[in-house]
Nucleic acid binder design. Sequence first.
DNA 1: ATTTGACTATTTCCGTTTTTCGGTCAAAGC
DNA 2: GCTTTGACCGAAAAACGGAAATAGTCAAAT
Lengths: 202, 202
Amino acid sequence: MKDLIVESAKKYFSRFGFHKTTMEEIAKNIHKSKGVLYYYFKNKEELFNEVLKQELSCIKTELSKIMMSKNDSLVMLKEYILIRLKLLYKTVNYHETLKADFFEKYYFVKDVRDDFTKFERIQLTTMLKKGKDEGYLNVIDIDSTVDVILMVVSGIEIPLFLQNKYDEYEDTIEELSEMIANSLRMQKNKLFQVLLTQKHKQ
Amino acid sequence: MKDLIVESAKKYFSRFGFHKTTMEEIAKNIHKSKGVLYYYFKNKEELFNEVLKQELSCIKTELSKIMMSKNDSLVMLKEYILIRLKLLYKTVNYHETLKADFFEKYYFVKDVRDDFTKFERIQLTTMLKKGKDEGYLNVIDIDSTVDVILMVVSGIEIPLFLQNKYDEYEDTIEELSEMIANSLRMQKNKLFQVLLTQKHKQ
DNA sequence: ATTTGACTATTTCCGTTTTTCGGTCAAAGC
DNA sequence: GCTTTGACCGAAAAACGGAAATAGTCAAAT
């Protein structure tokens, strides 16, 4: 029953948004009385958060797969950024949470969003650490680099998702991910410095 | 008289915002009748745009100075980004124009904003071209790289300016500018390749 | 050419009324 | 005992109409 409710809610929240969707219509859609929604969920906000959590959980799963691949960390980083934006673009309810930055009536999504940010921070930190250990990445302070990446990808969400510019900016996003990766690429001159020193000694 | 009006308007718009500022109080501040405002400006929107234009004009002047410096293009690029954000942070009326992304009642600021973006595009393009010609920058497509930079710096304006996170993110911004510059840095391995070849021949 | 201030038109504000909707829970159903 | 219903309540939102405020106007004055 709970799943049925969440599915119905997902459908309506995605289409009409949190505020325009009524509990009555969510219930009617599954031929139930509205009271049953409150048997399983404390209130409308909790139902929305459950929908959101499930959607973000799917995205987390997909993003985690990137960590499993055999690609080097720069490729993984690029993929992470691109796939992240692509999946979130498809998650309409997530777009609505961006409005929490402006409207107090979205206060209740904060925890779910913070949880997702935490997940992201862990993923990125792991990725950068791996790249650093492998010698591919040149990162001095992993935490602050993660801050930058998060700030950048979050910053572009509003134009991309709320202003529907994702398609327009698809190439630019691709290049952005390239630039971010490139900015962290270990300079190969260090290798050649070693080689040069050896040649000089011979 | 026109300057007097603009100065008075700047003071009130900055403090109370466009919508909360009345033409009456702008006029009273300079001991004039409200009707004189309409002699010089078509309407309230035009007056606001004039204020905005003048403020952005000062910023354009400061940013243009960066082009005059003797620094290499990477340093200039970093400075451009940092100074840009810093100056815009101080321009309260500009912050208000960011709301145009959400509220239709700010439709009238579009042209002034587009003009500023054009200016920026020219500056960045010039800078990148110079860096490419000097051999400092590794840029394949200048236009699309400029797109990325603009998208990124614009993206972070809302958290920084509208959510007052500039101070909190000051270090992150610094690192962002470093990363952007770094992503475009010409790989020095090419230089060492040449040197290595010469040593090998000797 | 510039400024004023009375005036108009439009917008905003405010208090009241009506409607909607989130939430409740005793009773019914399984 | 668990689950569901549907009548009900109170709070919030929406609608309404009138008052107040404000943007804009323009003939007259300077």
